[in-house]
Design a protein around this nucleic acid. Structure first.
Length: 112
DNA sequence: ACTCTGACTCCTT
DNA sequence: GAAGGAGCCAGAG
């Protein structure tokens, strides 16, 4: 459903610079619990014109979701580094960089 | 209605 | 840490 994609895209657009969010987190904030995989699909279908911070969306535990064999993997790491999100080994330090949305942002994601 | 798919997540080897 | 498997569920054809 396109409506779900738009909701997901909107939530992703809210991730602040220098922060990251997991697929599951985006799904939850979009009012779509257990829809992490739908988030990945929405991301892959998102038009470049939306200029979504796709690189701020990572897999659970701070891992990069894009396969290392894909060029996007490296691009994502570079993008994150450019805004100060440095990886510890192969993972992002979630304690330090995970987005903790305010109540206002949560409500926005739910429809406002 | 049914099958296949997945930039996921969690748990077990 | 790597690999494999099960659970997950909407989207696409």
């Amino acid at each position: 459903m396109k409506n779900h994609y738009e909701k997901i895209w909107h939530t992703i657009s809210l991730i602040p610079l220098g922060r990251v969010a997991t697929y599951g987190q985006i799904a939850d904030l979009s009012g779509l619990p257990k829809r992490a995989r739908l988030v990945s699909k929405a991301l892959s279908l998102a038009a470049p014109e939306l200029q979504l911070p796709w690189f701020r969306v990572i897999a659970a535990g701070g891992r990069i979701a894009i396969p290392k064999s894909s060029p996007g993997h490296r691009r994502q790491i570079e993008k994150l580094a450019s805004e100060g999100v440095i990886l510890s080994g192969a993972r992002v330090d979630m304690k330090r960089y995970q987005w903790q949305p305010s109540l206002a942002e949560i409500l926005q994601g739910l429809d406002g």
